[in-house]
Amino acid sequence: MAGPKKTVTASSQSPVSAITSAGQDLVKSYVDNTPKRVKIIDTFLLFIMLSGVAQFVYCALVTNFPFNAFLAGFGSTIGQFVLTAAFRAQVNPSTRSEFTIISPERAFADFCIGSIILHFFVYNFLG
């Protein structure tokens, strides 16, 4: 991950265009600097987030009647999301330095155990 850092002169740009250009830079920097494995994690995260948003919208718009089912489904997406995000932080080289005793393999094992326990509670609560 060695792209040259870009600098932008924040002189005479309107906020909207400043944000959009910052956004484009962000995307480009992301695509360049992130390892492929982390990108796989990110697609997984995106999928989970969409699934969670869909369930939340359904709950808000249509009915929240089997509230426990909503909580179980939504909770499963939230839980999976944060577990994966934690896993990403533990594996991503840029943040890995904070974790002194967690190796990536240990991180993966933790992630699996956590997810399995999460799914166990989800299915217990679902019905």
Binding site: I48, F70, G73, F74, S76, H119, V122
Partner: peptide, 27 residues
Amino acid sequence: RFLSSAWPYYLGALSTSAAFVLFCALW
């Protein structure tokens, strides 16, 4: 037990589990 109005949640939970398994495999 299983209510018809809750199908998106069932779907969501199942899809999350399936995606998790898939992701583990991929990883």
